[in-house]
Measured scan of single mutants.
Amino acid sequence: RRRVRAILPYTKVPDTDEISFLKGDMFIVHNELEDGWMWVTNLRTDEQGLIVEDLVEEVG
Results as ranks from 00 to 15, higher is better:
residue 20 S to H: 03
residue 26 M to Y: 13
residue 42 N to Y: 02
residue 30 H to P: 00
residue 31 N to P: 01
residue 10 Y to A: 03
residue 6 A to P: 01
residue 22 L to P: 02
residue 38 M to P: 00
residue 3 R to T: 14
residue 3 R to C: 11
residue 29 V to K: 02
residue 9 P to D: 15
residue 28 I to D: 12
residue 23 K to A: 14
residue 8 L to H: 12
residue 5 R to V: 13
residue 15 D to R: 08
residue 24 G to E: 05
residue 15 D to Y: 12
residue 41 T to L: 10
residue 54 D to V: 11
residue 17 D to P: 10
residue 43 L to I: 12
residue 50 L to I: 12
residue 29 V to R: 01
residue 22 L to Y: 09
residue 36 G to T: 04
residue 60 G to D: 14
residue 5 R to F: 07
residue 32 E to C: 10
residue 28 I to S: 07
residue 56 V to G: 01
residue 38 M to R: 04
residue 4 V to Y: 08
residue 28 I to R: 05
residue 2 R to H: 07
residue 40 V to T: 04
residue 12 K to P: 08
residue 2 R to D: 05
residue 31 N to H: 15
residue 58 E to A: 11
residue 30 H to A: 05
residue 59 V to M: 13
residue 30 H to R: 06
residue 39 W to C: 08
residue 55 L to M: 14
residue 44 R to A: 06
residue 36 G to D: 04
residue 39 W to H: 06
residue 3 R to Y: 15
residue 24 G to H: 07
residue 21 F to E: 00
residue 41 T to S: 08
residue 59 V to F: 11
residue 26 M to A: 06
residue 12 K to H: 07
residue 7 I to V: 12
residue 50 L to F: 09
residue 55 L to P: 01
residue 13 V to D: 09
residue 13 V to P: 05
residue 45 T to K: 03
residue 10 Y to E: 00
residue 12 K to V: 03
residue 50 L to S: 08
residue 28 I to G: 03
residue 34 E to Y: 11
residue 2 R to Y: 07
residue 23 K to T: 11
residue 11 T to E: 12
residue 40 V to S: 03
residue 21 F to W: 03
residue 1 R to L: 15
residue 37 W to P: 02
residue 58 E to P: 12
residue 59 V to Y: 11
residue 13 V to E: 11
residue 54 D to P: 07
residue 23 K to Y: 08
residue 2 R to S: 06
residue 47 E to C: 07
residue 59 V to A: 12
residue 34 E to G: 15
residue 41 T to K: 07
residue 14 P to E: 13
residue 47 E to Q: 10
residue 4 V to G: 02
residue 1 R to K: 15
residue 23 K to W: 06
residue 27 F to N: 00
residue 47 E to D: 10
residue 55 L to F: 15
residue 22 L to Q: 13
residue 8 L to P: 00
residue 59 V to C: 10
residue 11 T to F: 09
residue 2 R to P: 07
residue 24 G to Y: 07
residue 27 F to P: 00
residue 10 Y to G: 02
residue 15 D to P: 03
residue 10 Y to K: 04
residue 30 H to K: 05
residue 29 V to T: 03
residue 45 T to D: 04
residue 34 E to D: 12
residue 24 G to V: 02
residue 43 L to P: 03
residue 25 D to E: 03
residue 35 D to T: 09
residue 4 V to C: 07
residue 10 Y to D: 00
residue 45 T to W: 01
residue 50 L to T: 10
residue 21 F to D: 00
residue 42 N to H: 09
residue 14 P to C: 06
residue 12 K to A: 15
residue 24 G to R: 03
residue 48 Q to R: 11
residue 5 R to Q: 10
residue 45 T to N: 13
residue 24 G to S: 05
residue 19 I to D: 00
residue 19 I to P: 00
residue 22 L to S: 09
residue 39 W to Y: 10
residue 48 Q to I: 13
residue 23 K to L: 10
residue 39 W to K: 05
residue 46 D to A: 12
residue 60 G to M: 13
residue 40 V to I: 02
residue 26 M to N: 09
residue 17 D to T: 10
residue 14 P to A: 11
residue 18 E to R: 05
residue 31 N to V: 15
residue 30 H to G: 05
residue 17 D to A: 13
residue 41 T to M: 07
residue 12 K to R: 12
residue 46 D to F: 15
residue 27 F to S: 00
residue 56 V to P: 00
residue 18 E to Q: 14
residue 6 A to H: 01
residue 54 D to T: 15
residue 15 D to E: 12
residue 46 D to H: 14
residue 33 L to T: 09
residue 13 V to R: 15
residue 10 Y to W: 07
residue 9 P to F: 07
residue 52 V to A: 15
residue 51 I to W: 01
residue 59 V to T: 09
residue 52 V to P: 15
residue 60 G to Q: 14
residue 55 L to T: 05
residue 35 D to Q: 11
residue 5 R to D: 02
residue 20 S to N: 08
residue 19 I to F: 02
residue 18 E to M: 07
residue 53 E to W: 13
residue 56 V to F: 04
residue 3 R to D: 04
residue 19 I to S: 01
residue 5 R to P: 01
residue 44 R to H: 05
residue 9 P to K: 08
residue 20 S to E: 04
residue 3 R to H: 13
residue 45 T to S: 09
residue 37 W to Q: 08
residue 57 E to V: 11
residue 33 L to N: 08
residue 18 E to W: 04
residue 11 T to D: 13
residue 4 V to H: 03
residue 2 R to Q: 06
residue 21 F to L: 02
residue 36 G to H: 08
residue 6 A to W: 02
residue 33 L to F: 13
residue 54 D to Q: 11
residue 40 V to R: 00
residue 18 E to T: 07
residue 32 E to K: 12
residue 58 E to K: 08
residue 3 R to G: 05
residue 45 T to I: 02
residue 53 E to V: 14
residue 10 Y to M: 04
residue 41 T to A: 05
residue 55 L to C: 08
residue 11 T to Y: 08
residue 28 I to A: 08
residue 45 T to M: 03
residue 53 E to Q: 13
residue 15 D to T: 07
residue 10 Y to S: 03
residue 15 D to G: 14
residue 52 V to F: 14
residue 37 W to K: 11
residue 11 T to Q: 12
residue 46 D to Y: 14
residue 21 F to M: 05
residue 33 L to H: 09
residue 30 H to Q: 08
residue 33 L to W: 11
residue 15 D to C: 10
residue 38 M to H: 03
residue 29 V to Q: 01
residue 48 Q to W: 09
residue 23 K to I: 11
residue 46 D to T: 12
residue 42 N to L: 13
residue 14 P to I: 09
residue 35 D to C: 10
residue 35 D to W: 11
residue 49 G to C: 01
residue 36 G to I: 03
residue 55 L to R: 09
residue 47 E to R: 06
residue 52 V to H: 15
residue 56 V to R: 01
residue 53 E to C: 08
residue 52 V to L: 15
residue 13 V to C: 10
residue 13 V to M: 15
residue 30 H to E: 11
residue 54 D to F: 15
residue 23 K to V: 13
residue 39 W to T: 04
residue 26 M to S: 07
residue 18 E to F: 06
residue 31 N to F: 15
residue 6 A to N: 00
residue 56 V to T: 12
residue 53 E to Y: 13
residue 14 P to Q: 10
residue 24 G to T: 03
residue 60 G to W: 14
residue 5 R to K: 11
residue 11 T to G: 06
residue 8 L to Y: 13
residue 20 S to I: 01
residue 17 D to I: 08
residue 6 A to M: 01
residue 5 R to L: 08
residue 38 M to L: 15
residue 32 E to L: 11
residue 18 E to I: 05
residue 25 D to A: 02
residue 26 M to I: 14
residue 26 M to C: 10
residue 38 M to S: 04
residue 24 G to I: 05
residue 50 L to N: 04
residue 56 V to W: 03
residue 49 G to E: 01
residue 26 M to T: 11
residue 32 E to N: 11
residue 16 T to R: 05
residue 28 I to N: 08
residue 24 G to F: 06
residue 19 I to H: 01
residue 57 E to C: 07
residue 60 G to R: 12
residue 35 D to R: 10
residue 41 T to Y: 09
residue 43 L to F: 06
residue 44 R to W: 04
residue 28 I to K: 06
residue 29 V to D: 01
residue 33 L to G: 09
residue 51 I to F: 01
residue 4 V to A: 05
residue 18 E to V: 05
residue 33 L to Y: 12
residue 52 V to D: 15
